[in-house]
Amino acid sequence: MDHSKQTAKKAGEAGQRGRPREFDTDTVLASASQVFWDHGYHATTIDDLCKATGLLRGSLYGVFGDKHGIMLAALDHYSEGAVARLAQRLSAPVEPEQALREALLHYARVACALSGQRSCLITNTTLEMQPGDEELRARVAAIQRRMATLLAAAVIRGQSSGAFDSTLDEKAAGEFLLCLMQGLRVMGRVAQGEDALTGIVDVAMRALV
């Protein structure tokens, strides 16, 4: 467990009556993530976060600093799960090209299911990011690098099996696939049909051959 989680789990606060309160960081961050996911960073208020987490302002501020700090911690929490799930899909016990295609189709299906609603928290946060927010920019870039690395590894496995063009630059291919994943999330918000998004995935797969 990292230092921030240890601190949060043991954190006490002088509440309205001066009594300490302890809370589980993962539970709090899961609730905060949901609020940011539903409303976006700028529309979310501290009162929204207090209501969702069941904590007082002092508890949240004492551990995370401010709304921006809560958002960064919530994004970290969400991204850990998102990266782990991507890794699991890409390492499924099937042929490398099938695992990659199914992973991409998952994003297409989710995008369609959430049409007109919330998209991926990572994508939403990236689109809301202000130009001068270097801390968030660095955080999002690190998440994207992790995902692109997983996708590049999937391309390498496909090259090793003979399914993908061996001359492809795996790093560029991984970043291309990351762009595709993020694009599927955005396009799905404007009611693109699943067939249309599946067609895009198939074009991407042909580009790797």
Score class of each variant (00 low, 15 high):
Thr126Arg: 10
Thr167Met: 07
Val203Trp: 12
Asp165Glu: 11
Asp202His: 04
Leu197Cys: 08
His39Asp: 14
Met205Ile: 00
Leu104Ile: 05
Ala148Lys: 10
Ala152Ile: 09
Leu197Ile: 06
Asp26Gly: 14
Asp24Leu: 03
Ile156Arg: 14
Arg146Ile: 01
Gly162Arg: 02
Gln16Pro: 04
Gly69Ala: 07
Thr125Glu: 07
Arg145Tyr: 13
Ala163Gln: 12
Phe36Trp: 07
Ser160Arg: 10
Gly199His: 07
Asp195Leu: 02
Thr123Cys: 08
Gln34Glu: 14
Gly183Val: 04
Gly69Cys: 05
Gly116Thr: 02
Gly183Asn: 12
Gly158Glu: 02
Ser161Thr: 12
Arg189Cys: 01
Gly58Phe: 04
Asp165Cys: 07
Arg185Lys: 12
Ala153Ser: 15
Cys50Thr: 11
Ala32Thr: 00
Ala73Val: 00
Gln117Gly: 07
Asp133Ile: 06
Glu13Asp: 12
Arg57Val: 05
Arg139Ser: 12
Arg189Gly: 09
Ser160Leu: 08
Arg21Trp: 01
Ala108Leu: 13
Ile200Met: 15
Leu136Pro: 04
Cys50Lys: 13
Tyr107Lys: 14
Val186Asp: 03
His106Val: 00
Ser115Thr: 08
Asp26Arg: 13
Leu180Cys: 06
Leu29Lys: 03
Leu104Cys: 02
Gly54Met: 09
Thr45Ile: 12
His68Leu: 02
Arg21Ser: 05
Pro20Glu: 14
Leu55Gly: 02
His68Met: 03
Glu134Pro: 10
Gly188Pro: 09
Leu114Thr: 06
Met71Leu: 02
Leu29Met: 05
Ala74His: 01
Val83Asn: 07
Glu194Tyr: 07
Gly54Thr: 07
Thr44Lys: 10
Arg109Asp: 15
Gln192Phe: 13
Lys67Gly: 10
Gly199Gln: 06
Ser33Gln: 09
Gly12Ser: 15
His39Leu: 14
Lys5His: 11
Thr167Cys: 03
Met181Thr: 10
Val201Arg: 05
Ser79Tyr: 06
Gln117Asp: 10
Ser119Ile: 05
Lys51Val: 05
Gly18His: 05
Ala30Lys: 06
Ser119Asn: 14
Leu197Arg: 06
Leu104Val: 01
Ile70Phe: 05
Thr167Arg: 13
Val35Met: 01
Ala52Arg: 00
Leu197Gln: 09
Arg19Ala: 06
Ser119Val: 06
Gln88Ile: 01
Glu80Lys: 04
Ala87Asp: 11
Gly183Lys: 08
Thr53Ile: 00
Gly116Trp: 03
Arg157Ile: 03
